[in-house]
C-alpha cells in the first residue's frame, strides 16, 4: 500500500510539472488555432535561461521565474508580430510547418550556443520530506506543483475577470463576432502569444532542476503537452489540471510498477493516450474552449 501511495504522490507532483508545462500550449491552440510545434523548444529556452542565471549569478531557478517570464513574453510578442501573425489565418498545416521550422532553428541555435551537453540546475528546495518510513514527498516537484497551481489560479482569474482576459476568450469563441464588437484581434493574439510563451518559459525554469537541460529535450515535451491538451480540451484551464494529473499519475505508476523500462515507456503512454483521446473523445475529457475536431472532414 505504501508503494502505491508513494506512486500516487509522485504522480501528483509530476502532474504539477505537466500542468505548468501544458497551459501555454493549450491556450495558444484554443485561442489562436495555432498548434505550437515549437512548444518544447520554448520550454528548453526557459530552462537554459534559468541554467545561465544559476551558473553565472548563482541564482536559484525559483527566483528567476519572473525575469524568465518577461524575457520569453517579449520574445513571444516579437515572434507573433513577425511570423505567427502571417500564418494565423492560413490553414493549420502552414502554421504547423512554420512552427516546426522554428523548433529546428531553436534546437540548433541552442546547440551552437550551449553545446549538446546535458546540464543540470540546482535548487535549495531539494530533497524529500518523509511522511512515514517508506512514503515521502519530493520537495522540488512539490514546489513546482504549488507554483503551477498559483499560476493556474492567476490565469483563471485573469481570463474570467479582466477585460483583456475576456477579449481573449471572446476571440477564441468567435473571431468574427469579436472583431465586430470592436476587439483588436491582432492585439489580443499578440498578448495571448506573449503570455503563453512567458508561462512556457517559467515551466522551463521550474523543470530545469528536475529534467536535465539539453537542446533536444523539446519534442517529447511537445508530445506530452499535446497528449494532455487532447485529453483536457483546447484552452481549458481546469481541464489542463485534470489532464496533467492523469498523465502524471499514469507515468508515476508505470515508473514504479514496470521494472527499469517504465520511465522510457512514459513517452509511449503519452502517445497511446493522445491517439486514443483524439479518436475516441475529441472534445476532451473535461470540455474546452472548442472541440479538437480530429475526425471531421
Amino acid at each position: 500500500m505504501s508503494t502505491f501511495s508513494q506512486a500516487l504522490i509522485n504522480g501528483i507532483a509530476l502532474g504539477g510539472m505537466y500542468l505548468i508545462l501544458v497551459l501555454g500550449f493549450s491556450i495558444i491552440w484554443g485561442v489562436m488555432g495555432v498548434i505550437n510545434l515549437a512548444h518544447g523548444e520554448f520550454v528548453m529556452v526557459g530552462a537554459y535561461l534559468a541554467w545561465v542565471a544559476n551558473e553565472w549569478l548563482g541564482s536559484d531557478p525559483f527566483l528567476v521565474v519572473l525575469p524568465v517570464f518577461f524575457i520569453l513574453a517579449a520574445f513571444g510578442f516579437v515572434l507573433q508580430r513577425i511570423l505567427v501573425n502571417r500564418v494565423i489565418d492560413r490553414p493549420h498545416l502552414v502554421s504547423l510547418l512554420v512552427m516546426f521550422g522554428v523548433s529546428i532553428i531553436l534546437q540548433n541555435a541552442m546547440k551552437l550556443i550551449f553545446s549538446a551537453d546535458f546540464r543540470r540546475n540546482d535548487t535549495v528546495l531539494d530533497g524529500a520530506w518523509s511522511l512515514s518510513e517508506r512514503v515521502s514527498i519530493p520537495v522540488t516537484k512539490f514546489m513546482v506543483l504549488l507554483v503551477a497551481l498559483a499560476v493556474l489560479v492567476a490565469l483563471h482569474q485573469f481570463l474570467q475577470r479582466t477585460r483583456t482576459g475576456k477579449s481573449i476568450r471572446a476571440a477564441a469563441q468567435n473571431r468574427e463576432a469579436a472583431r465586430i464588437v470592436g476587439i483588436d484581434i491582432n492585439k489580443v493574439y499578440a498578448i495571448t502569444f506573449a503570455l503563453c510563451l512567458g508561462m512556457t518559459g517559467v515551466a522551463g525554469a521550474l523543470i530545469s532542476p528536475i529534467l536535465s537541460v539539453q537542446p533536444f529535450q523539446g519534442p517529447p515535451l511537445t508530445l506530452k503537452a499535446f497528449a494532455i491538451t487532447a485529453m483536457s480540451g483546447l484552452g481549458s484551464v481546469k481541464g489542463a489540471l485534470g489532464g496533467a494529473m492523469v498523465l502524471g499519475i499514469i507515468e508515476a505508476m508505470l515508473a514504479l510498477y514496470v521494472d527499469k523500462i517504465g520511465t522510457n515507456l512514459a513517452v509511449v503512454a503519452s502517445f497511446v493516450i493522445l491517439v486514443a483521446a483524439l479518436v475516441l473523445r475529441p472534445q476532451g475529457l473535461f470540455g474546452g474552449l472548442r472541440p479538437v475536431d480530429a475526425t471531421a472532414s
Partner: peptide, 19 residues
C-alpha cells in the same frame, strides 16, 4: 485523423517507436 492531427499522431508514433 485529419490534417494536423494525423501529422502529430505520426510524430508521436515515431517518438514512441524509438523509445
Amino acid at each position: 485523423l485529419k490534417g494536423p492531427y494525423f501529422s502529430i499522431a505520426m510524430l508521436g508514433t515515431f517518438v514512441a517507436m524509438r523509445e
